[in-house]
Design a binder for these strands. Structure first.
Lengths: 246, 246
DNA sequence: CGAACGCTTGAGAAGTATCAATACAAGTGG
DNA sequence: CCACTTGTATTGATACTTCTCAAGCGTTCG
């Protein structure tokens, strides 16, 4: 597993052309889209687009991060590793997501690309300056941060009070939300599901087995599933009416 | 337990004088202190200061919140109640903290005053407008939100991967950080510690008993403790060097 | 004094982790 | 093409942690 820091990533890919925000991939974007032209210019003087391969680490647990980043495309897992070697995924960050710390303390977490990922990388100081100059950018990032906070709190509740089958059912419903076809892909491996749900691989597998045995889901292949009884599945997940996962 | 919403709280205390931000209690404040005069004026046209008694609910789980608030003084617990009646405290919010959702969906959580609390209450729309007008306010709130996010993620890690004694040790260290005298108060009751740590009262009590039996802590009275072996306690808590709890 | 509340302690039950074996799929190299 | 390795998933037996239910204790307060 690569252990590059943001700075290292920047040094490693100096050939990447300086790309302006005007042709930014981030169409649904949080940041660039809501900056006025001047602010965008100022920020884009410092922002660099980088491409990361699957498994590449963007920030490494324990190192002070001099840079922050926005995810342009692809998916990143934000995770921490306990002293005894177990991993906990704290969030899955997709396009528009913010990575890094706003102060200069060491980051407690690692961000690892789950597939090919494009990010926009900023020195922390210039990023902060840009945010303080543009109210729109600040408001957009604030909105995003508060959404992240809300989602993290809901997941904290699930981890703290939910049983194994509740957590797995919630994950399956989240996977199912991503597409409309009846057959859904497991977006994560069993190991990643376990790391996200705070369980072991074996427990995740057993709960999926229980759901299959109860005919609540079916497993046409090993990496896809169909929901046979959505109502029961939602009931197991303890879904509150009025807000949906993710 | 009172179940008032923000709107109800506003209606309930109409006699409170409209207080300007210039004499705001929030000296270390996140918001008001960093607004320029015009923005402060604009916001203060809508902000109302409210005093809440211990146990009073500021927002109620499931209700759409039309207002947001900043905590001026006192401490609030942000918590959720599961369908089966157990409570999970998601965060303890002190002066400078932000309460509420920035969108109009129902709030998933309740905020309950742990003691006498002063808050500054804003209609959500005017609050948002003020943030979009003032880059400084946006930046300050963003900083705060990202801190909250970081702390919540650390606690999620602790809940997901930590054992009962690790969680309790972490809480004790957090209590001990609040004062310098050798004898520390339990800032929360056993029940609140359990709700925060995702445990039961009995388990919390047993872990405290274990720490006492191992001479790692002493219990001079029932609502205070002394740390006898700080190093071991920190080792149990699994404290990473480089960042401290809360 | 009795009631209410918060805390402690005990015994048994339940849920999940751990350890271990096996199965399956996808490469890889002979 | 087939053995072999590697990564991932399933299944079983057992141990351990925490929850649940229950009882008892100490303090405060009416």
């Amino acid at each position: 597993m690569t252990t590059e820091t943001l700075a290292a990533a920047q040094a490693q890919a100096p050939a990447t052309p300086r790309t302006g925000c005007d042709d930014c991939v981030l169409k649904v974007g949080t940041l660039c889209r809501r900056l006025d032209h001047d602010a965008r210019e100022a920020l884009h003087r410092y922002g660099r687009r980088r491409t990361l391969a699957k498994g590449q680490t963007i920030t490494w647990q324990g190192e002070p991060a001099s840079h922050v980043a926005n995810v342009l495309s692809g998916v990143v897992k934000l995770s921490a590793t306990t002293p005894d070697g177990r991993e906990q995924i704290l969030d899955i960050v997709g396009p528009g997501g913010f990575l890094g710390r706003i102060d200069d303390r060491a980051s407690a977490f690692s961000a690892i690309a789950l597939g090919p990922v494009e990010i926009c990388l900023f020195p922390r100081e210039s990023f902060l300056a840009a945010v303080e100059d543009s109210a729109e950018a600040g408001a957009a990032l604030l909105e995003r941060a508060l959404e992240d906070l809300d989602r993290t709190r809901r997941w904290l509740l699930m981890i703290a009070r939910g049983t194994a089958i509740e957590r797995v059912a919630t994950l399956l419903l989240a996977f199912a939300e991503r597409d409309t076809s009846p057959r859904h892909a497991f977006a994560l491996t069993r190991g990643q599901m376990a790391d996200l749900a705070g369980l072991t691989i074996e427990t995740v597998s057993r709960q999926i087995g229980r759901l299959k045995a109860s005919n609540i889901i079916a497993l046409p292949t090993r990496d896809s599933f169909e929901i046979r009884d959505a109502e029961t599945l939602r009931a197991i997940a303890g879904e509150q009416p009025g807000h949906r996962p993710h």
